[in-house]
Simulated assay, not measured.
Amino acid sequence: MALLEKDELLAVIERLINSTKSGKLKWRPYQDRGEMEAETAKFVYYIKPRDDDDAPPYQFQVYAEGNRGMVLEVISSRDELELQNAMSTLYSSSKLSALGIGSLKDEIFNDLTELDSE
């Protein structure tokens, strides 16, 4: 099922990445298997590694909010490098969001600074 064209899908993923990095969109683990989901007023966004190995390719799905059984879009990044790169960034950002980490670099530097001050 591909209702969105590739350029439209890339634009959606970029907006999700930007909203995630800015902290406006919060992700959470789904069923604790490396699967991530986030909700907005109308939709649920879901992303996971296709092979459950925490690596590309990824599967991205969009559901109608309140109706998890109604899949509106399913995309795999398997054959598209540009799509795979965007989905990889989204997946990494979603994991950091679920952990409450805004910037991995800043968190690591702060952690190491605290370690140095002990």
Rank of each mutant, 00 (worst) to 15 (best):
E14V: 08
Y45R: 01
K21E: 15
Y63I: 04
E5R: 15
A98Q: 01
D116P: 00
Y91C: 03
S117P: 01
L16M: 06
D116T: 07
A98P: 02
L10Q: 12
V71K: 09
L25R: 05
P57F: 03
Y45S: 00
D116N: 11
S117R: 13
G100C: 06
L104I: 13
I17V: 15
F60L: 02
S19W: 09
A2F: 10
R28A: 11
G69K: 10
E37C: 09
A11Q: 13
N67A: 13
S117N: 11
P56V: 06
D106F: 07
S117T: 11
V74R: 09
K42V: 04
Y63T: 04
L83Q: 00
G34K: 04
D54I: 07
R28W: 03
R33Y: 12
L90I: 03
Y30R: 13
E82L: 09
E35T: 14
F109M: 14
L9Q: 05
S94H: 02
L9F: 10
G69I: 05
Q61T: 09
T89Y: 10
S76R: 03
D7T: 14
R68Y: 12
R50K: 15
D52S: 13
R78H: 11
L81N: 10
R33N: 12
E114Y: 06
K24N: 11
I17Y: 01
Q59R: 11
I47Y: 03
L104G: 07
Y91F: 14
M87R: 03
A11F: 08
S77K: 01
A41W: 02
P57C: 05
E118Q: 15
R78D: 09
F109R: 13
L99F: 06
E5Y: 09
K21F: 06
L4C: 03
K42C: 00
G66H: 09
S92F: 09
L25D: 04
E73F: 02
P57G: 05
I108R: 08
K26S: 11
E39Y: 06
T113F: 05
F43M: 08
G66D: 07
E39C: 02
G66M: 08
D53N: 15
G102Q: 12
K21S: 10
S22C: 05
A55M: 12
L112Q: 06
E114M: 07
M70E: 15
E8R: 08
L83G: 03
E35D: 10
L72D: 05
E80K: 05
R78K: 13
K105V: 15
D53R: 13
N85I: 11
L99Y: 08
S103D: 15
N85M: 10
T20G: 06
Y63G: 05
G66F: 08
V74L: 08
A64S: 12
Q61Y: 09
G100E: 07
S97C: 10
L72P: 02
E8D: 11
A38E: 02
